[in-house]
Structure formats: structure tokens, C-alpha cells
Simulated assay, not measured.
Amino acid sequence: MEDAIKTVVMTYIKSSKGKENLDSSSFKKLVSKQLGGIMEDADSSSAIKEMQKGLDENSDGKVNFSEYLNLIGYLANAMSQKQCGSTEAAS
């Protein structure tokens, strides 16, 4: 678990190049390179723009760490539901 948390934090720091926020370009790269295996539209520029807009709670055009964590939480929840659904269907 500790390694997973470190990975989430370090991925953000590397993607933001040590800045407080991910700009549009950095966010797009993070999603397409790091989340392509678990997100359907990770290669769609328009879908990524809409995702960024939806995460951007303070409407500054950037994704801060807290907003990024909302995305991670959403993805973790979706993955959990998918796995639990697979387990229940197999029973």
C-alpha cells in the first residue's frame, strides 16, 4: 500500500515538473501515458479536455494535487466495482 501511495504522489510530481499544478499539456501526457491501461478515452484529446474541465474545481484551467486525487479516487472506485462485479458474477 505504501508503494502505491508513493507512486501516486511521485507520478504527480514528475508530471507537474515539481510545480503546484498540472497544466493542460502535462495533464494530457499523464493521462495518456500513465492511465491508458485503465481508461477508455486516454488517447482522445477532447475526452481528456472534458475530464480536466470536470476535475478543475477552482476553474483555473489547471489540475492541482487535490483535483488529481479526485481522479485517482474515481478510478480506484471504478476498478473496485468492476472487480467486485466480476467476482459476484462468477459466484
Results as ranks from 00 to 15, higher is better:
D43H: 11
D3A: 12
Y12R: 03
S80E: 12
M1T: 12
S44E: 06
V63G: 02
K6G: 05
I38G: 10
G54T: 10
G37V: 09
K33E: 10
A42S: 13
K28W: 04
K49H: 12
D60M: 06
K82A: 14
D56I: 06
S46E: 15
A90Y: 08
A78V: 12
N77T: 13
D23T: 11
G37A: 12
V8F: 00
S46Y: 06
C84F: 14
E40N: 14
S86E: 15
S80Y: 14
L35W: 01
D43W: 05
E50S: 15
L55Q: 04
D41V: 04
E88D: 09
K6W: 10
A76W: 03
S15K: 02
A4H: 11
S66R: 04
K29V: 11
G37K: 12
I13D: 04
K53A: 08
G18S: 05
N58L: 05
T11K: 03
E40K: 15
N21C: 08
Q34K: 11
A90N: 09
Q52C: 07
N64F: 00
G61Y: 09
L69P: 02
K53W: 04
Q83W: 13
T11M: 07
I13L: 11
D60P: 02
E57S: 13
D56N: 08
V63P: 01
L22C: 04
V63Q: 01
T11N: 08
D3Q: 14
F65R: 01
L35G: 03
I38D: 11
Y74C: 12
L30G: 00
K6C: 08
D3E: 13
A89E: 11
D23C: 08
S16P: 01
S91E: 14
S91C: 12
S46M: 12
L22D: 00
K19N: 14
K14V: 03
L30Q: 02
M51D: 01
Y68S: 00
G18W: 07
N70Y: 04
K82C: 12
K49R: 13
I13F: 06
L69E: 03
Y74Q: 13
Y12H: 02
L55N: 03
S24H: 07
V8L: 05
N77V: 09
S46R: 14
V63N: 01
Y12W: 03
D23M: 08
A78G: 08
K14G: 05
M39L: 12
L35E: 03
S86P: 08
A4P: 04
D3G: 09
S16H: 03
G85F: 10
E20N: 08
Q81W: 07
T11Y: 02
S25V: 10
K14D: 08
A47G: 06
L55R: 03
A90D: 10
S45Q: 14
L71A: 01
S26R: 05
M39C: 07
Q83H: 14
F65I: 00
V63H: 01
T7F: 09
N70P: 02
V31I: 13
S66Y: 04
A78L: 13
K82G: 10
K29G: 06
A4W: 07
K33I: 05
G36V: 02
K14F: 07
T11D: 02
Q34G: 10
K33L: 07
D56H: 03
S46P: 06
V31E: 00
G85I: 07
I72T: 04
G61I: 10
G61Q: 09
D56A: 02
I38V: 15
